[in-house]
């Protein structure tokens, strides 16, 4: 598993690197001392895992996550501000308190491998996004896209319908669409993308549109043009 260390303190990076030396499954592909370096590093090395400090000059660890297209796995490393990690809604993430205890690190890595074995490996050259980091006001989420039923365009933003939460993501729908798994997500109309796994039933409408009923959600109109594609896709 390719991992990257993001921490502004050289000694802290060195210490973590040494601790990780005893985990052969973790390959450290690079280091970064601040958000700018980290953004470039993620681009270059495509790590699957970040060891991420929170307080850094020029931006926090959260700022970094907000700038990434696709949120990698993250283990926060922090000296004292672990309450910041608790700001996360719903899905708790791992965090390690510095100085890092080797046993805690081992447990975190083990949990990570357990989580990874459930995931599908992407096939295309540009891998589809599996998780998104969303910061909406003071709240942060890691949103697994397979749990998102509907994505609605709101100007330059999109709203993710994810269970009861509907966080807003600062990204236009068209740019997000390119990175979604086409086997799962379908552009129903100009403003909406639906998760095919959430479709409960499909009705024929007048004039060639389709009406898709989402599980625990609204009925979505599939425009005439998209309905043709939808039919070939699902052989209705």
């Amino acid at each position: 598993m390719k991992a990257m260390i993001v921490d502004d303190e050289p000694l802290a990076r060195r210490e973590l690197r040494r601790l990780l030396a005893s985990f052969p499954t973790i390959e450290i592909v690079g280091e970064a001392a601040n958000v700018e370096e980290a953004v470039a590093g993620v681009e270059r090395w495509q790590p699957e895992l970040l060891f991420l400090d929170i307080q850094m000059p020029g931006g926090t660890g959260f700022d970094l996550l907000a700038r990434l297209d696709q949120a990698p796995q993250v283990i926060f490393t922090t000296a004292y501000d672990h309450h910041a990690v608790h700001a996360f809604e719903v899905n708790a993430l791992d965090y390690l308190l510095k100085p890092i205890e080797p046993e805690r690190l081992a447990a975190a890595v083990a949990r990570l491998h357990a989580a990874k074995s459930h995931q599908l490996q992407p096939t295309s050259q540009e891998p589809a996004i599996e998780r998104l980091f969303v910061r909406d006001g003071p709240r942060c989420w890691f949103v697994p896209l397979q749990e998102v039923s509907l994505i609605v365009s709101e100007g330059n933003y999109v709203r993710l319908h994810w269970g009861k939460a509907q966080p807003l993501l600062a990204r236009p729908l068209s740019s997000l669409e390119q990175r979604l798994d086409p086997r799962r997500f379908f552009r129903a109309n100009r403003r909406q993308i639906i998760n095919l796994d959430f479709i409960e039933s499909v009705d024929l409408g007048v004039g060639g549109q389709l009406h898709a009923q989402l599980r625990d959600g609204p009925e979505i109109e599939i425009s005439r043009r998209q309905a043709r594609i939808f039919r070939t896709l699902t052989t209705i």
């Binding site: 000694l11 802290a12 210490e15 000296a79 004292y80 510095k98 100085p99």
Partner: peptide
């Protein structure tokens, strides 16, 4: 200053070997 304290301890831990 716990932030300073724990970060310093972390530095010390790194230095012990090097």
């Amino acid at each position: 200053n716990p932030h300073f304290l724990f970060n310093s301890l972390n530095s010390v831990r790194a230095l012990i070997a090097d």
